[in-house]
Design a protein around this nucleic acid. Structure first.
Lengths: 135, 135
DNA sequence: ATACAACCTAAACCTGACTTTAGGTCAACA
DNA sequence: TGTTGACCTAAAGTCAGGTTTAGGTTGTAT
């Protein structure tokens, strides 16, 4: 099976220019073309793009993703680098989740704060001792 | 207690120019100054900045944070908007955590994939049926 | 044959969130 | 009194990650 750039854009919820940009940035080094120069994506390209999206969602830059893609093209000699990179990504994502959990606590407090204020009709319900300007 | 911009930068792990930028962007509307124009941060400003950081970490833009800050200055008439905003933020953060958990699954798989490949000395250990290019 | 959508490139443009630069003021210490 | 470090502003610069534009080609349906 092979897909046009427009089909892939729909499948992965990306725009056509974004896919061209990724290609230009070297994230699709093995992408094939028709004789007339039209890109032909196969299932492995789609899987690669899903990994690219995963790495992007983990907070990696395009430049660092390209480094990884290049390692993939170098074969077994880069296995250690690639392993280390995923271990590092794991730690980074764990840290982000932790951070978001802390953010959630604050947001949950604010939801309660504004719900009670809204029920009371006024934020003054929360001004026990400390008064004055506040968000 | 009041603090200089440099002290606040250290306390919140921000740069001095970033704090000036936030001020210029209207995130600190009640910030006081000395007669000679030097910024004087008090404890409530610090708390406000912590909320700004929380909202930023939840994925909000400076522009939208300013809108919220402006609502805070409008008093009780904006309670509903502020409540709704936090409910929306809660949903947004939940979605991000969910997304990161999916990302984690893929990364965990890749950690396993590369660990076994590394132990075997070659990625070929994973090529059972489908062979060819792959990341 | 002709239209029309989908494809192509190169290059310019855009946005957000800062950072850097340039030129100046202020406050405390020796 | 001088000098040093921290403060100030306005304006320009930076960077990532795309998006838009302009001009052109391709392929399929009528």
């Amino acid at each position: 099976m092979s897909y046009s750039i427009g089909e892939v854009a729909k499948m992965l919820d990306l725009t056509v220019p974004t896919l061209r940009y990724y290609d230009k940035e070297g994230l699709l080094p093995l992408l094939e073309r028709t004789e007339s120069g039209i890109r032909k994506f196969n299932d492995i390209d789609i899987e690669s793009l899903k990994i690219v999206e995963c790495l992007k969602a983990s907070g990696m830059s395009i430049k660092d993703i390209r480094t990884f893609i290049n390692w993939c093209g170098e074969g077994d000699s880069s296995l250690k680098q690639r392993y280390d990179m995923f271990i590092e990504r794991k730690a980074a994502v764990e840290k982000q989740i932790e951070e978001l959990n802390k953010v959630m606590e604050t947001i949950d407090f604010k939801c309660w704060y504004y719900k009670t204020a809204l029920d009371a009709g006024t934020e003054a319900v929360h001004q026990q001792i400390k008064s004055g300007k506040s968000i």
